[in-house]
Simulated scan of single mutants.
Amino acid sequence: MMRSVLVSMMLLAAPAAAQNATLSERTYGTWQNPKNSVHVEARECDGKMCGVVVWASDKAKADARRGGTDQLIGRQLFQDFEEQQEGRWKGKVFVPDINRTFHGTVTIIDADTLEGKGCLLGGIGCKSQVWTRVK
């Protein structure tokens, strides 16, 4: 009896694991901002999702330096993101132009599009950007 319960639990858990892998495949990868001035690689960092700058235009690097962020390449723009519901992640968003971190969300729109949104405390002063997958 106990063995059949364990087998049943394992069979029920298998589709959830496959679904999570599919979600990771949809979320992880390299994304570009609307101006194609920054490319961020979404990947796992310490069991959570993060977005690390892997490429930036000279203008984006200069804007970041003016804002107080000396090194843009390698910097985590999306930090400590945890999935809240399927396709919607919540964490912190670093804005290099002003050298500040805000609460934010990433929502998967489709396989090649996501929306990143950052807000001041209490959900006011929000800004969002639609990012597209780099092919």
Score class of each variant (00 low, 15 high):
G47C: 08
R43M: 11
K35M: 15
E25S: 11
N33P: 06
A17N: 00
A56F: 10
D46E: 09
E25L: 07
Y28G: 00
H39I: 10
K48H: 05
W31V: 06
V52I: 15
N33K: 01
G29Q: 02
T22C: 10
C45I: 08
V54R: 13
E25G: 12
N20L: 14
V38P: 07
K35V: 11
P34M: 10
V38R: 02
A42H: 10
K61W: 03
H39S: 07
E25Q: 09
R66I: 06
G29L: 04
G68Q: 05
V40H: 05
Q19W: 07
G68V: 02
H39A: 02
G68T: 04
A60G: 10
Q19F: 09
K35A: 15
A64P: 01
G29E: 00
D63T: 05
V54T: 13
T69L: 13
R65T: 00
G47H: 08
W55V: 09
C45S: 06
R43A: 05
S24M: 11
T69F: 13
K48E: 01
V52D: 07
R26A: 12
S57I: 12
A60K: 04
V53L: 06
N33H: 10
A17I: 10
R43S: 07
A21L: 13
M49D: 00
E41G: 04
T69Y: 14
K61N: 09
D46Y: 05
Q32P: 06
R26H: 10
K48I: 06
N20I: 15
V53T: 06
D58Q: 06
N33S: 09
N36S: 14
R66D: 12
C50P: 02
A42S: 06
E25Y: 11
S57A: 07
A64M: 08
A62N: 06
T27G: 09
D46Q: 11
Q32A: 12
N36M: 15
D63A: 02
K35L: 14
D46M: 06
T69C: 12
L23N: 01
W31I: 04
R65S: 01
A62M: 05
G51N: 13
W31S: 04
H39L: 12
G67A: 12
V40A: 13
L23Q: 03
M49K: 03
W55P: 08
M49N: 03
H39N: 08
G68C: 06
R43F: 08
S24W: 10
K59S: 14
Q19I: 02
A62Y: 04
S37L: 11
G68W: 08
W31Q: 01
Q19A: 06
K48T: 11
K59T: 15
K35R: 12
A21W: 09
A42R: 09
A18K: 01
W31T: 00
M49W: 04
K61L: 07
Y28C: 07
R65Q: 13
G47W: 04
V54M: 05
K35D: 15
A56E: 08
S37D: 15
A64E: 05
T69I: 11
G51A: 14
S57G: 01
N36G: 10
D58Y: 00
V54L: 12
N20W: 14
